[in-house]
Amino acid sequence: MNNIQSLTKKGSFYLPENISANLGQFDILFYVIFWLSVILFVGLLIFGFFFIISGKRQQDDQLAKKQITHNVKLEVIWTVIPTLIVIIIFFWGFKEYLIMRTTAPNALEIYVSGKKWFWEFTYPNGKKAIDELVVPVNQPIKLIMSSTDVLHSFYLPNLRVKRDVIPNRYTVMSFESAKLGNYNIFCTEYCGDQHSNMKAILKVVDSDDYTSFLNEVDFDESIPLSEAGANIYVKKGCNACHSVDGSNMIGPTWKGLYNKNREFADGTYAKADEVYLKESILYPQRKIVKGYQNVMPSYQGLLVDKEIDAIIEYIKELSK
């Protein structure tokens, strides 16, 4: 598959590579807190270790060398100094947070819709893509996000940004990538069975690749219809819930599906012909096969008619 940059091999010991244009200070803040903690922790360790060594109890009920109950000067010091350190960290963190959350005026707006277990991106010219966010480099991007069912959360580790995606509300997130390449996108708010498969790819390309991507038509006439159907089966994420080897997953398998008699949850029956297949792709809620959950999102507007025909051709191919 397209080579996604590794989170563990690239970047520093604790953090993946930071490709964000405006969040350079993030890693510095992270390692300042890290080294401060290590110094204080090792300090406490040494004190403790030294006290244990020097204080080993010789015979049974030997009392402590000196009964010290309090020392006001010391106590004031170790209250005031941590408070100051902590306030500095707060302000630095807050400054970085504001950079994260303010969107540049000339940002490129992309709509993100989180559905149960895949991401759907709508680009400015109306083109829709599944699990594939293509953005030009060094261009502020503004993602306007909403979910259609449950809570999700859009997380770009390499850009250090994350925002919850809430149904019935648009939440906004912005970033600017300064480096080309393919990067991971995760869903970090628990959203059900396939929460861990709800991954997408961020493709940072230069601006002319971006414009060619926008005008690229998914469908090329040259290859036979069923083969195009097979590509769409993978590209549009059908493989997440439907198998082609006969095993039933979240959704029924496509092997041997064509013209098969289907029994529905409400007890009615129908043959799986072209009309039924097209209707189930565009309006899945209408006919739910017995024993399956009603979780399939509608692909209306996501697949053009030619693509639906290709999928139906592919199913016929599988059922021979």
Binding site: L98, R101, T102, T103, S146, N168, R169, Y170, T171, V172, M173, S174
Partner: peptide, 11 residues
């Protein structure tokens, strides 16, 4: 207040 958030009409 900072990132504009719009509440979709209650569908």
């Amino acid at each position: 207040a900072i990132t504009d958030e719009v509440s979709q009409p209650y569908g």
